[in-house]
Amino acid sequence: MSINQNIIEKIVKIFLWIFTIITIFILFYIVGFILKNGIGGLSKEFFMEFPKSMGREGGIFPIIIGTILLTLAAVFIAGPLGIGTAVYLTEYTRENRITQMIRFGADCLAGIPSIVFGLFGFVLFVIKLKMGWSIISGGLTLSIMILPTIIRTSEEAIKAVPKPLREVSYSLGGTKWQTIVFIVIPQALPGILTGIILSIGRCVGETAAVIFTAGSSLRLPNSLFDSVRTMSVHFYILSREGISLKNAYATASVLIISIGMINFLSYWIMHRFIRRIEGK
């Protein structure tokens, strides 16, 4: 019986190890495969030049700019809304019907497939509101998509701010607003930033919602109402339409490296944040 159990224990452990190793192997395989084929295509020119003949040759300069602008637009819209929501949920009210509804709403929003955001954004912003394929249409669409992430992470971060700090501020004559601005938000900032950085990652990686709202122009945008192409969209078009596998790999490498850096950055900030909260 006992020997039997020991054997089962061993077998289970081996299987768990194997499955975990498979998962990690997949990760490394994907990352490795893309980088192996793409890193050779990376050069200063690739980053700094305009694409030629639909991206068959040349670089991805306007695409990098487009990705950044679109992401910034989304974050600038969703950031204040998300942080504001989190502040309301944590500072202004206790658990009740309304907060539960708001949380449920955010969860639902988080579950909506990106293509549904694309469908919505395309017909509402691009067509009905006549904003066309543009940074603003794409930014608005993406901002709805990342709003739940920002709410969630900001809420967690704000909740982690110790109550005594707030009370000190109150006792020194701080109003609620002053306490939020001077104590709560600065203390929660690293956590909030982590959420924003993760959202940036989502924006950079998103394709379905972007391609129908921001379009796929290869030109540098002049205004918020110009179309841009993000790296994900560019990669999709290059590989799907067989324009240039070499540039597709190179673009994917840039994508993966950016995502890696974004993850690392958020991890690093979070780590310091946790240390600070637990340390002192």
Binding site: I26, G205, I259, I262
Partner: peptide
């Protein structure tokens, strides 16, 4: 339950990275 803490500390970010890889890249693979 079974993983040494040290390994978990490496695995978790790796899995988060898996979440961050754009879906077009998965499709491409």
């Amino acid at each position: 339950e079974f993983c040494p803490k040290k390994i978990a500390r490496i695995l978790k970010p790796a899995i988060e990275l898996l979440a961050g890889i754009p879906s077009v890249v998965y499709g491409f693979i």
